[in-house]
Amino acid sequence: MNGDPVSTFQFLGLTFSTANVVSGLIVFALIVAVVFFCSRKLAMKPSKGQNFLEWLIDFTNGILKGSIPADDVGKFGLWGFTLFFFLFLSNELGLFIQVATRGGATIVRSPTSDPIATLTFSLMTMMVAQFAGVWKLGYKRHFTNYLKPFVFWLPISIFEEFTNFLTLGLRIFGVIFSGEMLLGVIWDLAASHGIATMVVAVPIEMAWQGFSAFLGAIQAFVFVTLSSVYISQKLEVEE
């Protein structure tokens, strides 16, 4: 994919990648649609859509509860829910729909197969963690946490922030990007020698799609889990 042309456009002096914007909007629209239709007719006895939403909310709250103290989970519930839903759909989108222009530039694929998207979410997590730390402990105690267990730990603490930021963003990118790339490779193989290779490659393609769907779910889960861990680290005073 490295040599592929990339479709970009300029807006307000910033460069946008068409693929990222279009895919992001598709995911956005999908989530809004699902959430909107599932939250109609809320009742004490939940119906289908409400059940699904409540299950998802319980699920993401469960992830957060794994590391964040129970009193503070409520503050991050919405954030965790949106993050998980967005990442999950982003991971799965490219497995089923990939659209390219005539020139070969992709328009629709997984938003998370681009590091700029994943690193954006990773950066958001880091900022949420910082804000949470200041909100919970106050500026003084939050920043003195970097000097613990002793003052010379400061470079390591700051470095750790960067590694957290990079690993969190690049892990999900790597898995999704490689998954999509392999899908493309298998498809090229399938198309290479007509019907004979097609018969062989299509089952492999389907198997890989299934596996990637699984990986996408796992990665969304891991992302939210690690995010909540990073946040919970900022919520307590280190001894």
Binding site: T8, T15, S17, F28, T82, L83, F86, I116, T120
Partner: peptide, 18 residues
């Protein structure tokens, strides 16, 4: 060109979605 615009786009999208 580094498309930082996407970053902004995703942040805005995410906040709007939230």
């Amino acid at each position: 060109a580094l498309y930082f615009g996407d970053s902004l786009f995703y942040i805005v999208t995410f906040l709007l979605l939230m």
